[in-house]
Design a binder for these strands. Sequence first.
DNA 1: TATTATAGTTAGACCAATCTAACAAATATA
DNA 2: TATATTTGTTAGATTGGTCTAACTATAATA
Lengths: 228, 228
Amino acid sequence: MSLTYTEENYLKAILSLTLEAGKPDAGTNEIASQLNVKPATTNDMLKKLAEKKLISYKRYGKSSLSPSGKKIAIDIVRKHRLWETFLYKKLSFTWDEVHEVAEQLEHIQHSKLIDRLDEFLNFPQFDPHGDTIPTAAGVLKMSVKKTLDQEIIGHKCTMVGVKNNTAAFLQYVDKVGLSINHNLKIISHQAYYDSFEIEVTNKRINVSRKFAENIVIVCAACNKKADH
Amino acid sequence: MSLTYTEENYLKAILSLTLEAGKPDAGTNEIASQLNVKPATTNDMLKKLAEKKLISYKRYGKSSLSPSGKKIAIDIVRKHRLWETFLYKKLSFTWDEVHEVAEQLEHIQHSKLIDRLDEFLNFPQFDPHGDTIPTAAGVLKMSVKKTLDQEIIGHKCTMVGVKNNTAAFLQYVDKVGLSINHNLKIISHQAYYDSFEIEVTNKRINVSRKFAENIVIVCAACNKKADH
DNA sequence: TATTATAGTTAGACCAATCTAACAAATATA
DNA sequence: TATATTTGTTAGATTGGTCTAACTATAATA
């Protein structure tokens, strides 16, 4: 029983309005505006998805994903983020370009395709926007993103993005030996220079506060409490 | 003015029934059965495509692609074959699996995507089935395929496929240093052993007739006359 | 609590892609 | 050439996804 692209998009929209936004359910109008369609259209689709047991829906009430609907939605998010990672890492797309193409690629159906892609990309944990990639088993962890300057001394973390998207900055990031999904550790903060000493691939380097403020990271230790 | 998936599929079907089959035009029933739809459905679509100046169509007559329709169709073939090559080379899909997935991937729309993929794959000339990949400029050469044993002594050619798809044979092909899109040269035929001496990556090796009969190749020299 | 504003629903229409069933033209053949 | 077969067309229906316009609940607030 495979779904249409449109049905998949509704499930994905509900996921991002609930689980990702930390709310229990989503309203019809809210879903409609997320998908750029009219509420009437959404209403029809919600009834259809409820019929298929993919969501729970009551007249004049809010909607939420059923377990099977959630599984499917997370799967689409997994595809979306893996394709984004592919486009970014392998085809040199920029961070802002990847989303649009991934919106199409996420609907490609094939039993082996996405796990093969995952393997080819060496099982990345984060997409180019710093969002976590759900596992093949359907586990989606929420990541609390912060910038490098906000990290606790001694903690290990993973770079998941940048705030400054200029070519000059990206080149500098590259020169320092950093890239998406790369691990690093905060060694110390040097108060006099207001700079941070970090360890990247066993080398220690110093970076300015300004640099640190533009590097988005996720810290496993800090995330333990924030899981869903 | 972008086309629907369905419209693209009709154009592709007409291309394969005309240019690729070397005929001037295609009938309604023929197109219908190529696409697994009823003639009535095809008839409607032909009128619609004619309206858009993508094909020439006359009542009770045969149809053929207009220049702009042909351009689009070749573009889809390019996408299809590049995606097949990607799946085969990078994601370890087998030759028989790639088609089905490429049928979906060929409809992904993005101005830069396909040229980036082409570059990432190092501008391959042939897909995993040994068919030529149209260039970015929209040039589609027809390739005349033969097996290695049929090639003329002294000629340089490119391996584009195998006849025998067993794991054992594919492993042997790999061991010999051959793979899709790899160049080779026929040095001699040794009558006594009925074996062929070939040059692969500057190394000379001997292969049996049985082996040669299972290697599909394309020869640039032999193809000069066969171009469209 | 009565009124207003917001959110959600229904009915009726449209378009794209498909179908079936009935028909018409072109072609093959007896 | 008359007839049969193949090929192509038309009309009318269906399904999925969308819309607008009119309507009804629910929630907010004066």
